[in-house]
Design a protein around this nucleic acid. Sequence first.
DNA 1: CATACTATTTATCATATGATAATTTACTGG
DNA 2: CCAGTAAATTATCATATGATAAATAGTATG
Lengths: 231, 231
Amino acid sequence: MDIKSEPEVVNKPQSLSNDKPPTPRRRLSRDARMQEIVQAAVELFSETGFDGSTRDIAQRAGITQPLLYRYFPSKESLIEAVYEKVYLDRWNPEWDIALVNRDLSVKERFQRFYEEYTLTIFDPVWLRISSFASLRNAQIHDWYNHVVQEMILKPLVRERRIELGGSTEFLVSKEELEATWLMHGGLLEYGMRRFILEIDVTNDTGAVISQALDMYLLLTQAQLDQRQSQG
Amino acid sequence: MDIKSEPEVVNKPQSLSNDKPPTPRRRLSRDARMQEIVQAAVELFSETGFDGSTRDIAQRAGITQPLLYRYFPSKESLIEAVYEKVYLDRWNPEWDIALVNRDLSVKERFQRFYEEYTLTIFDPVWLRISSFASLRNAQIHDWYNHVVQEMILKPLVRERRIELGGSTEFLVSKEELEATWLMHGGLLEYGMRRFILEIDVTNDTGAVISQALDMYLLLTQAQLDQRQSQG
DNA sequence: CATACTATTTATCATATGATAATTTACTGG
DNA sequence: CCAGTAAATTATCATATGATAAATAGTATG
């Protein structure tokens, strides 16, 4: 990289005017600089995975590479910051209430929810970073799956049970969850096909959500019918 | 790595007997050595992604790193070989016939198929390598998705149409495929949760497949009913 | 305006990594 | 059994990469 940086240094004195230097050393507050670095890291890592180099991150952030180490003691700690930036604050607290608002049918409630939720996660940066994180055995991804299960899928199971006139038992079994995971996972895969693999799929997200929900609702209805006919 | 290999060399003369030397320079045929290297690369890459080093691959293969370059001109060409090893030969030609054998119901046919098929792909090595490959924009993954669509999903759409007494039209629309992709993607995500994230999910693969298929079959039935009631 | 503080850069290290050239050693055919 | 061929190793390069120490330069305060 000496070969790469040297010509630039040689070039600098040759510049005719000094009123427009390439980067006049912007001096930012600790917090602002930190956020710029994390943002640059998010973008690089989402493209290359977490093997993206600190030098590339620094370049994107418009700073030199050693400065990065004044804000993060190691690359791994920067990765932690990236995890937080990407995973946190993706949940709208209003959803908690909306999902159990029985003025609407389960279909309508979860249709609206998933249409908003997919606006958040059907994003190349999120999809790629979370894929890389899961392949790295990042525990944050386990935590995230837990959140999905507790905040979305278990409520779905419970609300559907109530809608079908079944038990109001709070506990949700692993078996009951499986069907919701199939639906949720199918949607995630749709997002991957569309935004990562860039396959030519339907771009009517609402229609896909509707189908996914219908599949789940029909299955639970059919399972109930079967149980009742068998006594 | 000099530090790592040197003690071994020093150790060799000290060994009391020469009938079990650490690695007496096995001399293999071009083909056999090539396969050992690819196998080692598959294993390493499935753990670390394609950034795994050629030195680590060589170590796993029990050879020195430069030897690798007598078989593959570059790391990228080794990666290509890994793609082939992992993606190819996963398809049992008998499946082509089994999927359109109308002696069995669509449910039974595809239940049997997916139970065999998941034996092939629900494998940490395959799941991880294919995830890494898709994040690398490897065109082989696009090709693989195409194969899935042509060999599994389009037949499923056609066979289901026939079973429901609908048209025997050969062409399958993007919209019709969406539902099968939701089901297939849900199953893939189940495999990921179980074998990559190592989440405590049902290990009754057959039951999960059955649920996924039921969801699809119920949806297509419901969609047909809806069309007929609307005229 | 001088001074202190700290954000930022320059210079540098140790190691890792893909790749190549030269040397050595195992097997095989005559 | 010996020589030639090719498999395998040793030595080495150039560059990339995470990380640190010292020097430099904005900015705010007295």
